[in-house]
Design a binder for these strands. Structure first.
Lengths: 240, 240
DNA sequence: GTCCAGCAGGTGGTCAGACCACTTGACCAC
DNA sequence: GTGGTCAAGTGGTCTGACCACCTGCTGGAC
């Protein structure tokens, strides 16, 4: 039997999720005022500290604005939310948002080659060796999930070599969105992570320290799956 | 006289900042255990809920890991922090981190053209009109801060037109890092936001719906300031 | 001596109730 | 109208308590 870790959802977690859903799913419009903490606590059947903690987390995510003595209002998440909200917006009301998925694929296709170019510029022989090991590990497995894990580790090395904190943090945010769904994505990503040849070409380009070649090679790694997934997403959208 | 809104720092805010600094500035290594909530509350002279709220926010930012009944440990922020932590990492221990600034400039130079290309693909006549208005507003002012505000509004339109939630959220995160420092950056960004001509070329390219031309035009808008700032940053680093 | 069940202590999770600080809006005097 | 006052409601903070959970120690069984 397939056991899995029990997920203990704390009370504030639960409240946070509910309020977040209200905001993200549009039940609460931007500018609208939330009920008071006391009232929310009463309605949800929890204590005020629990509500408070959830609202503070919403504030930290720039989704709410609290004013001491005044009302707590909803902010426009499209305008203020940070990249960390991406996973929550990818799946809204239980269904995958095709437009959001498309945007992630497009972003990947822009950023991946840019990072690869920087890595080529800055990486040394040690990087080339590490990348080669990583591709070898990728090539050595047949399991689609394991391949994705290896591909992720590969890109992790590339991002490290790019020596760019901005890209590193973007990568972290995107990975945080990607990892929980890795099993669900095994089938659709199989095409990409199976292209060991393309990864080897990219590795060679980075190893040679040639940014432009690396840029092109990274594009060749990412584009095929991007294109076919975008086609699939368009098909889904038109069916629905 | 230059009045400005009074900033009221709440107790949990203060605690959050202190703990964040400890983590980000390396006083607390990754894997290290934090003192217990009760102990922290005692040491900091605040109540436990205040400490608790701060720690929860740290957890939300993926900088801490709390285990019910066990200790709270520090996570590796380089590996787990999201893009929203960027502003806090840009200025560490009170000084601007040149490497982080460089990474932001590089990221901008990769993402800007990508977004411009998407906007060209998807924007219509309405977008062209809005962008033209925005550039006109940019051209009509002499104040460096006001110009930056207009440039920000311009890019906001471009990101909107790109119709990409992933890029929109990145832009939001980067803007949240940029806006508070906008006055301090007035001088160094003056070169870029003064290039009205380059913005007009970009606007025309987007208006024509030609992604590749737009990509190049966006590069021409962003690259000059990027290059000169990178040179300046290198000089700073070598002096220190 | 070795092993392990059981317990005690410490930790985070949650709650209730209280009081303070602040904003808002109604009301009133001018 | 203008400005002051006040009450009501809101968020901000604290105290103290209890529950759920993990860890390490301890003492008995072997």
């Amino acid at each position: 039997m397939a056991l899995q870790p029990v997920t203990r959802r704390s009370v504030p977690d639960e409240v946070f999720d509910q309020v977040l859903s209200e905001v993200v799913d549009g039940e609460l419009e931007a500018g609208e005022a939330l009920p008071s903490e006391r009232r929310l606590a009463e309605v949800l059947g929890v204590s005020r500290p629990a509500v408070r903690e959830a609202l503070q987390r919403m504030t930290q995510t720039r989704l709410l604005e609290v004013r001491h003595g005044g009302a707590t209002t909803v902010r426009d998440f499209r305008r203020f939310a940070g990249l960390d909200l991406l996973p929550r917006l990818l799946v809204r009301k239980g269904v995958l948002d095709a437009a959001v998925a498309r945007s992630i694929l497009e972003a990947r296709l822009v950023i991946g080659p840019g990072v690869a170019a920087l890595a080529a510029e800055r990486g040394g022989p040690a990087l080339h060796a590490a990348l080669t090991d990583s591709v070898d590990a990728l090539a050595a497995t047949d399991d689609d999930v394991a391949r994705q894990v290896h591909a992720l580790a590969y890109w992790d090395l590339v991002v490290d070599a790019a020596d760019s904190l901005a890209f590193r943090l973007m990568f972290n945010s995107l990975r945080a969105a990607y990892e929980p769904a890795i099993e669900a994505l095994a089938a659709v990503m199989a095409e990409e992570v199976g292209q060991v040849g393309a990864y080897r070409v990219l590795t060679a380009a980075i190893g040679e320290g040639d940014p432009e070649t690396a840029r092109v090679a990274a594009d060749r790694v990412l584009r095929p799956a991007t294109t076919s997934l975008l086609t699939a997403l368009t098909a889904i959208k038109e069916t629905s």
